[in-house]
Design a protein around this nucleic acid. Structure first.
Length: 396
RNA sequence: GCUGGAAUCGUCUAGUGGCAAUGACAAGAGACUGUAAAUCUCUCGCCUUCGGGCUUCGUAGGUUCGAGUCCUACUUCCAGCA
């Protein structure tokens, strides 16, 4: 994989660039739309291309039983109909979401996640050992063992352009020693991932890349040492992952990116709120992915340049979703009142239409933010743009 | 006209003589960041110094220590018979 840095920020960490994959280019920074199961919920591939998305991220765990079928079809890009650059996560997120994080919402602060009060009977669906993780599918209850080798073999069958090494994401309540222990395991898994990946990375007739994933929680010594260690290994790029505390996000990322080789691309895993994006870009992240734009759209939150709105409050409103948006939904003239009515309708077809229209809008918001950040860097006005955007978005 | 049944928070609904009284929907507030997420949490009679106080189950009486619940009358609605 080729990564060209087009221009760097004066701070020596942030940059814009171009990633070349077997399925096309990604101009960075870029928001990778999340299509966990091989499709972005309620957005067609045509719509996804039209809104300017450059890549799609899917998940090894969710596609594990379809991997052979996907390989048969020629890989994820063809199988999904996306026909563009793709990324897969290793299943590392599910180590947390199905394990320690079971029964809670993912939290970005150290306070315990909000309990979600569902399926309280079964405590843990991911048991970690040195070899790997025994997952229990929450739906089917089927058990799967996935370790670094399994994840690499599955990802190489799925055949995304960029894969993630198999890692262990931990929750926020881990102390330094627990984090260090988990991190050491993730590092051993990184070596195993790299070795196994090399055996299969050209199996589908094009080259597939592997990113090493940096964990280490909120501890500087752990973050720096793992960045040095994995940074010296033969990865094609790096995933910035783990329990990223919102209030210390910039510092945590700095510890990582100061130690990583500058010329390799970095993917900031799982973040998309504008404040996080600006910090990410500033600290040298190149690509991003996040479920928030689509999930929050489904839950009635609409992104606007003047802050997010909750559609519940706009019964009968004739106001546009966002006064300054070029997405297909806004261009077609849908109003807040229209969408509110569709969203709260008892009719499933109307709800599906709402999910489609709102998801397109929010994903376009995230994609466009990236485009504008890139342009602001080209124009030497990143700081000004950041201040303008965040002031307007979050208010004074 | 007669007989039987029914009236409970916006709507539908649970309710054994014993705590403003069930559940669902609607409504309101919040959450959501590598998708267990078409989800979750909270509020939903009035007031509150959060201890509690006050007023409520069609209307008016009654029995009872105590009534949404039992009794009487009335009102309205439904069903059956004339």
């Amino acid at each position: 994989m080729e990564f060209k840095i087009d221009k760097a920020l004066p701070n020596g960490l942030g940059r814009i660039g171009t990633i070349k994959t077997a399925h096309g280019e990604i101009k960075t920074p870029a928001f990778t739309a999340v299509g966990t199961g091989g499709e972005v919920r309620f957005i067609s591939m045509e719509e996804l291309h039209a809104l300017g998305a450059q890549a799609m991220l899917s998940n090894c765990y969710h596609l594990r039983n379809k991997a052979a079928e996907i390989a048969e079809a020629g890989g994820l890009a063809k199988y999904s109909g996306w026909n563009g650059p793709t990324v897969t996560d290793s299943g590392g997120f599910q180590v947390m979401s199905l394990g320690d994080g079971w029964g809670k919402k993912v939290a970005m602060t150290r306070e315990l996640g909000v309990k979600i009060n569902r399926d309280e009977g079964d405590k843990c669906h991911a048991v970690v050992t040195e070899e790997g993780v025994e997952f229990t599918d929450p739906e089917s209850k089927e058990k799967d063992f996935i370790g670094p080798e399994e994840s690499m073999r599955i990802q190489c069958q799925i055949g995304a352009d960029i894969h993630m090494a198999f890692d262990e994401l931990t929750s926020f309540d881990k102390d330094h020693d627990q984090s260090a222990e988990s991190l050491a395991r993730t590092e051993r898994w990184a070596e195993r991932s790299l070795a196994e990946h090399k055996k299969h990375c050209d199996d589908l007739g094009y080259h597939q890349n592997l990113y090493g994933v940096l964990q280490g929680g909120r501890w500087e010594d752990l973050r720096r040492s793992t960045a040095k260690k994995l940074g010296a290994m033969d990865f094609d790029g790096y995933g910035l992952g783990g329990a990223l505390e919102k209030e210390n996000l910039g510092e945590i990322l700095r510890w990582c990116t100061e130690e990583l080789p500058f010329e390799k691309p970095r993917h900031l895993l799982g973040l998309s709120h504008p404040d996080d994006i600006f910090i990410g870009v500033e600290m040298g992240a190149d690509t991003f992915d996040c479920v928030a734009p689509t999930r929050e759209a489904r839950h009635g939150k609409i992104y606007t340049r003047d802050g997010n709105i909750n559609l519940r409050k706009f019964t009968g409103s004739t106001e546009p979703l966002d006064h300054d948006c070029d997405c297909a939904t806004c261009r077609a003239g849908w109003t807040r009142g229209d969408l509110r009515a569709l969203w709260r309708s008892g009719d499933v077809e109307k709800k599906v239409q709402y999910w489609n229209l709102a998801s397109i809008h929010n994903v376009r918001f995230s994609v466009r933010l990236m485009e504008e950040i890139r342009q602001s860097i080209l124009d030497d006005r990143f700081e000004e743009f950041k201040k303008e955007f965040l002031t307007r978005y979050y208010g004074e």
